[in-house]
């Protein structure tokens, strides 16, 4: 059973719809006991870093997610959910993230002349072979974001090019993040979610 962490963010229900469509057992929950009993977790997220951390904190979920990660539970953060996995965010001032992965969240530079947010379909370049990342090799997925994660090269499985190289899939042990929205990236996105379930959650 995958639990999609429900903390009143935008794409929670679309993630549930994608998992339902794939026939993957799942439920939405913000209950700590349910989250700690799950086989795997998905942390969605749309919006701003600080507000999202505050929403998790309000529900007592920051320590719950940290405990789940320490227990080795597979966790997939999506979009802002991926950004929350790292140590520090700099959207509207510095804020602490969940700290499940080293790294920080910084603005996409506007100096490149490119429009921010980075919105639309962009191609993934896989840097490290991985059963989940391999699904996305050379494939375009749907991105909507104004900030991006900077982390150690060893944690970057895939990247996309938007003037700067933006890590699109990151991983450290049982914790994984996708900057794009697999639930809005057509068949390839669905395949990626199915692969996460098969390789990390059911494994």
């Amino acid at each position: 059973m995958i639990v999609v962490v429900d903390y009143d963010t935008g794409n929670t229900r679309n993630l549930k719809k994608a998992l339902d469509y794939l026939g993957i057992a799942n439920q939405l929950s913000s209950d700590p006991a349910t989250i700690l009993a799950a086989d795997g977790l998905i942390l969605p997220g749309v919006g701003a870093f600080q507000k999202a951390m505050a929403a998790l904190e309000e529900r007592g979920l920051v320590t719950v997610l940290q405990t789940a990660a320490q227990q080795g539970k597979p966790i997939l953060g999506i979009c802002l959910g991926m950004q929350l996995l790292v140590e520090t965010g700099y959207e509207f001032g510095a804020a602490r993230g969940l700290g499940l992965l080293p790294g920080e969240v910084v603005p996409i530079p506007t100096a490149t002349g490119l429009k921010v947010p980075h919105m639309g379909w962009n191609t993934n370049e896989v840097l490290q072979a991985n059963p989940v990342a391999d699904v996305f090799a050379g494939q375009a997925t749907y991105f909507v974001h104004s900030f991006y994660v900077q982390t150690a090269a060893k944690n970057i499985l895939a990247q996309t090019d938007y003037g700067v190289k933006i890590p699109s899939i990151i991983q450290q042990d049982n914790v994984m993040g996708m900057q794009f929205h697999p639930e809005k990236s057509g068949q390839v996105g669905l395949q990626g979610l199915a692969r996460f379930n098969k390789e990390l959650v059911l494994a």
Partner: peptide, 8 residues
């Protein structure tokens, strides 16, 4: 639509 089609 959103239960069957996974794009923006």
């Amino acid at each position: 639509v959103a239960a069957q089609v996974f794009m923006p």
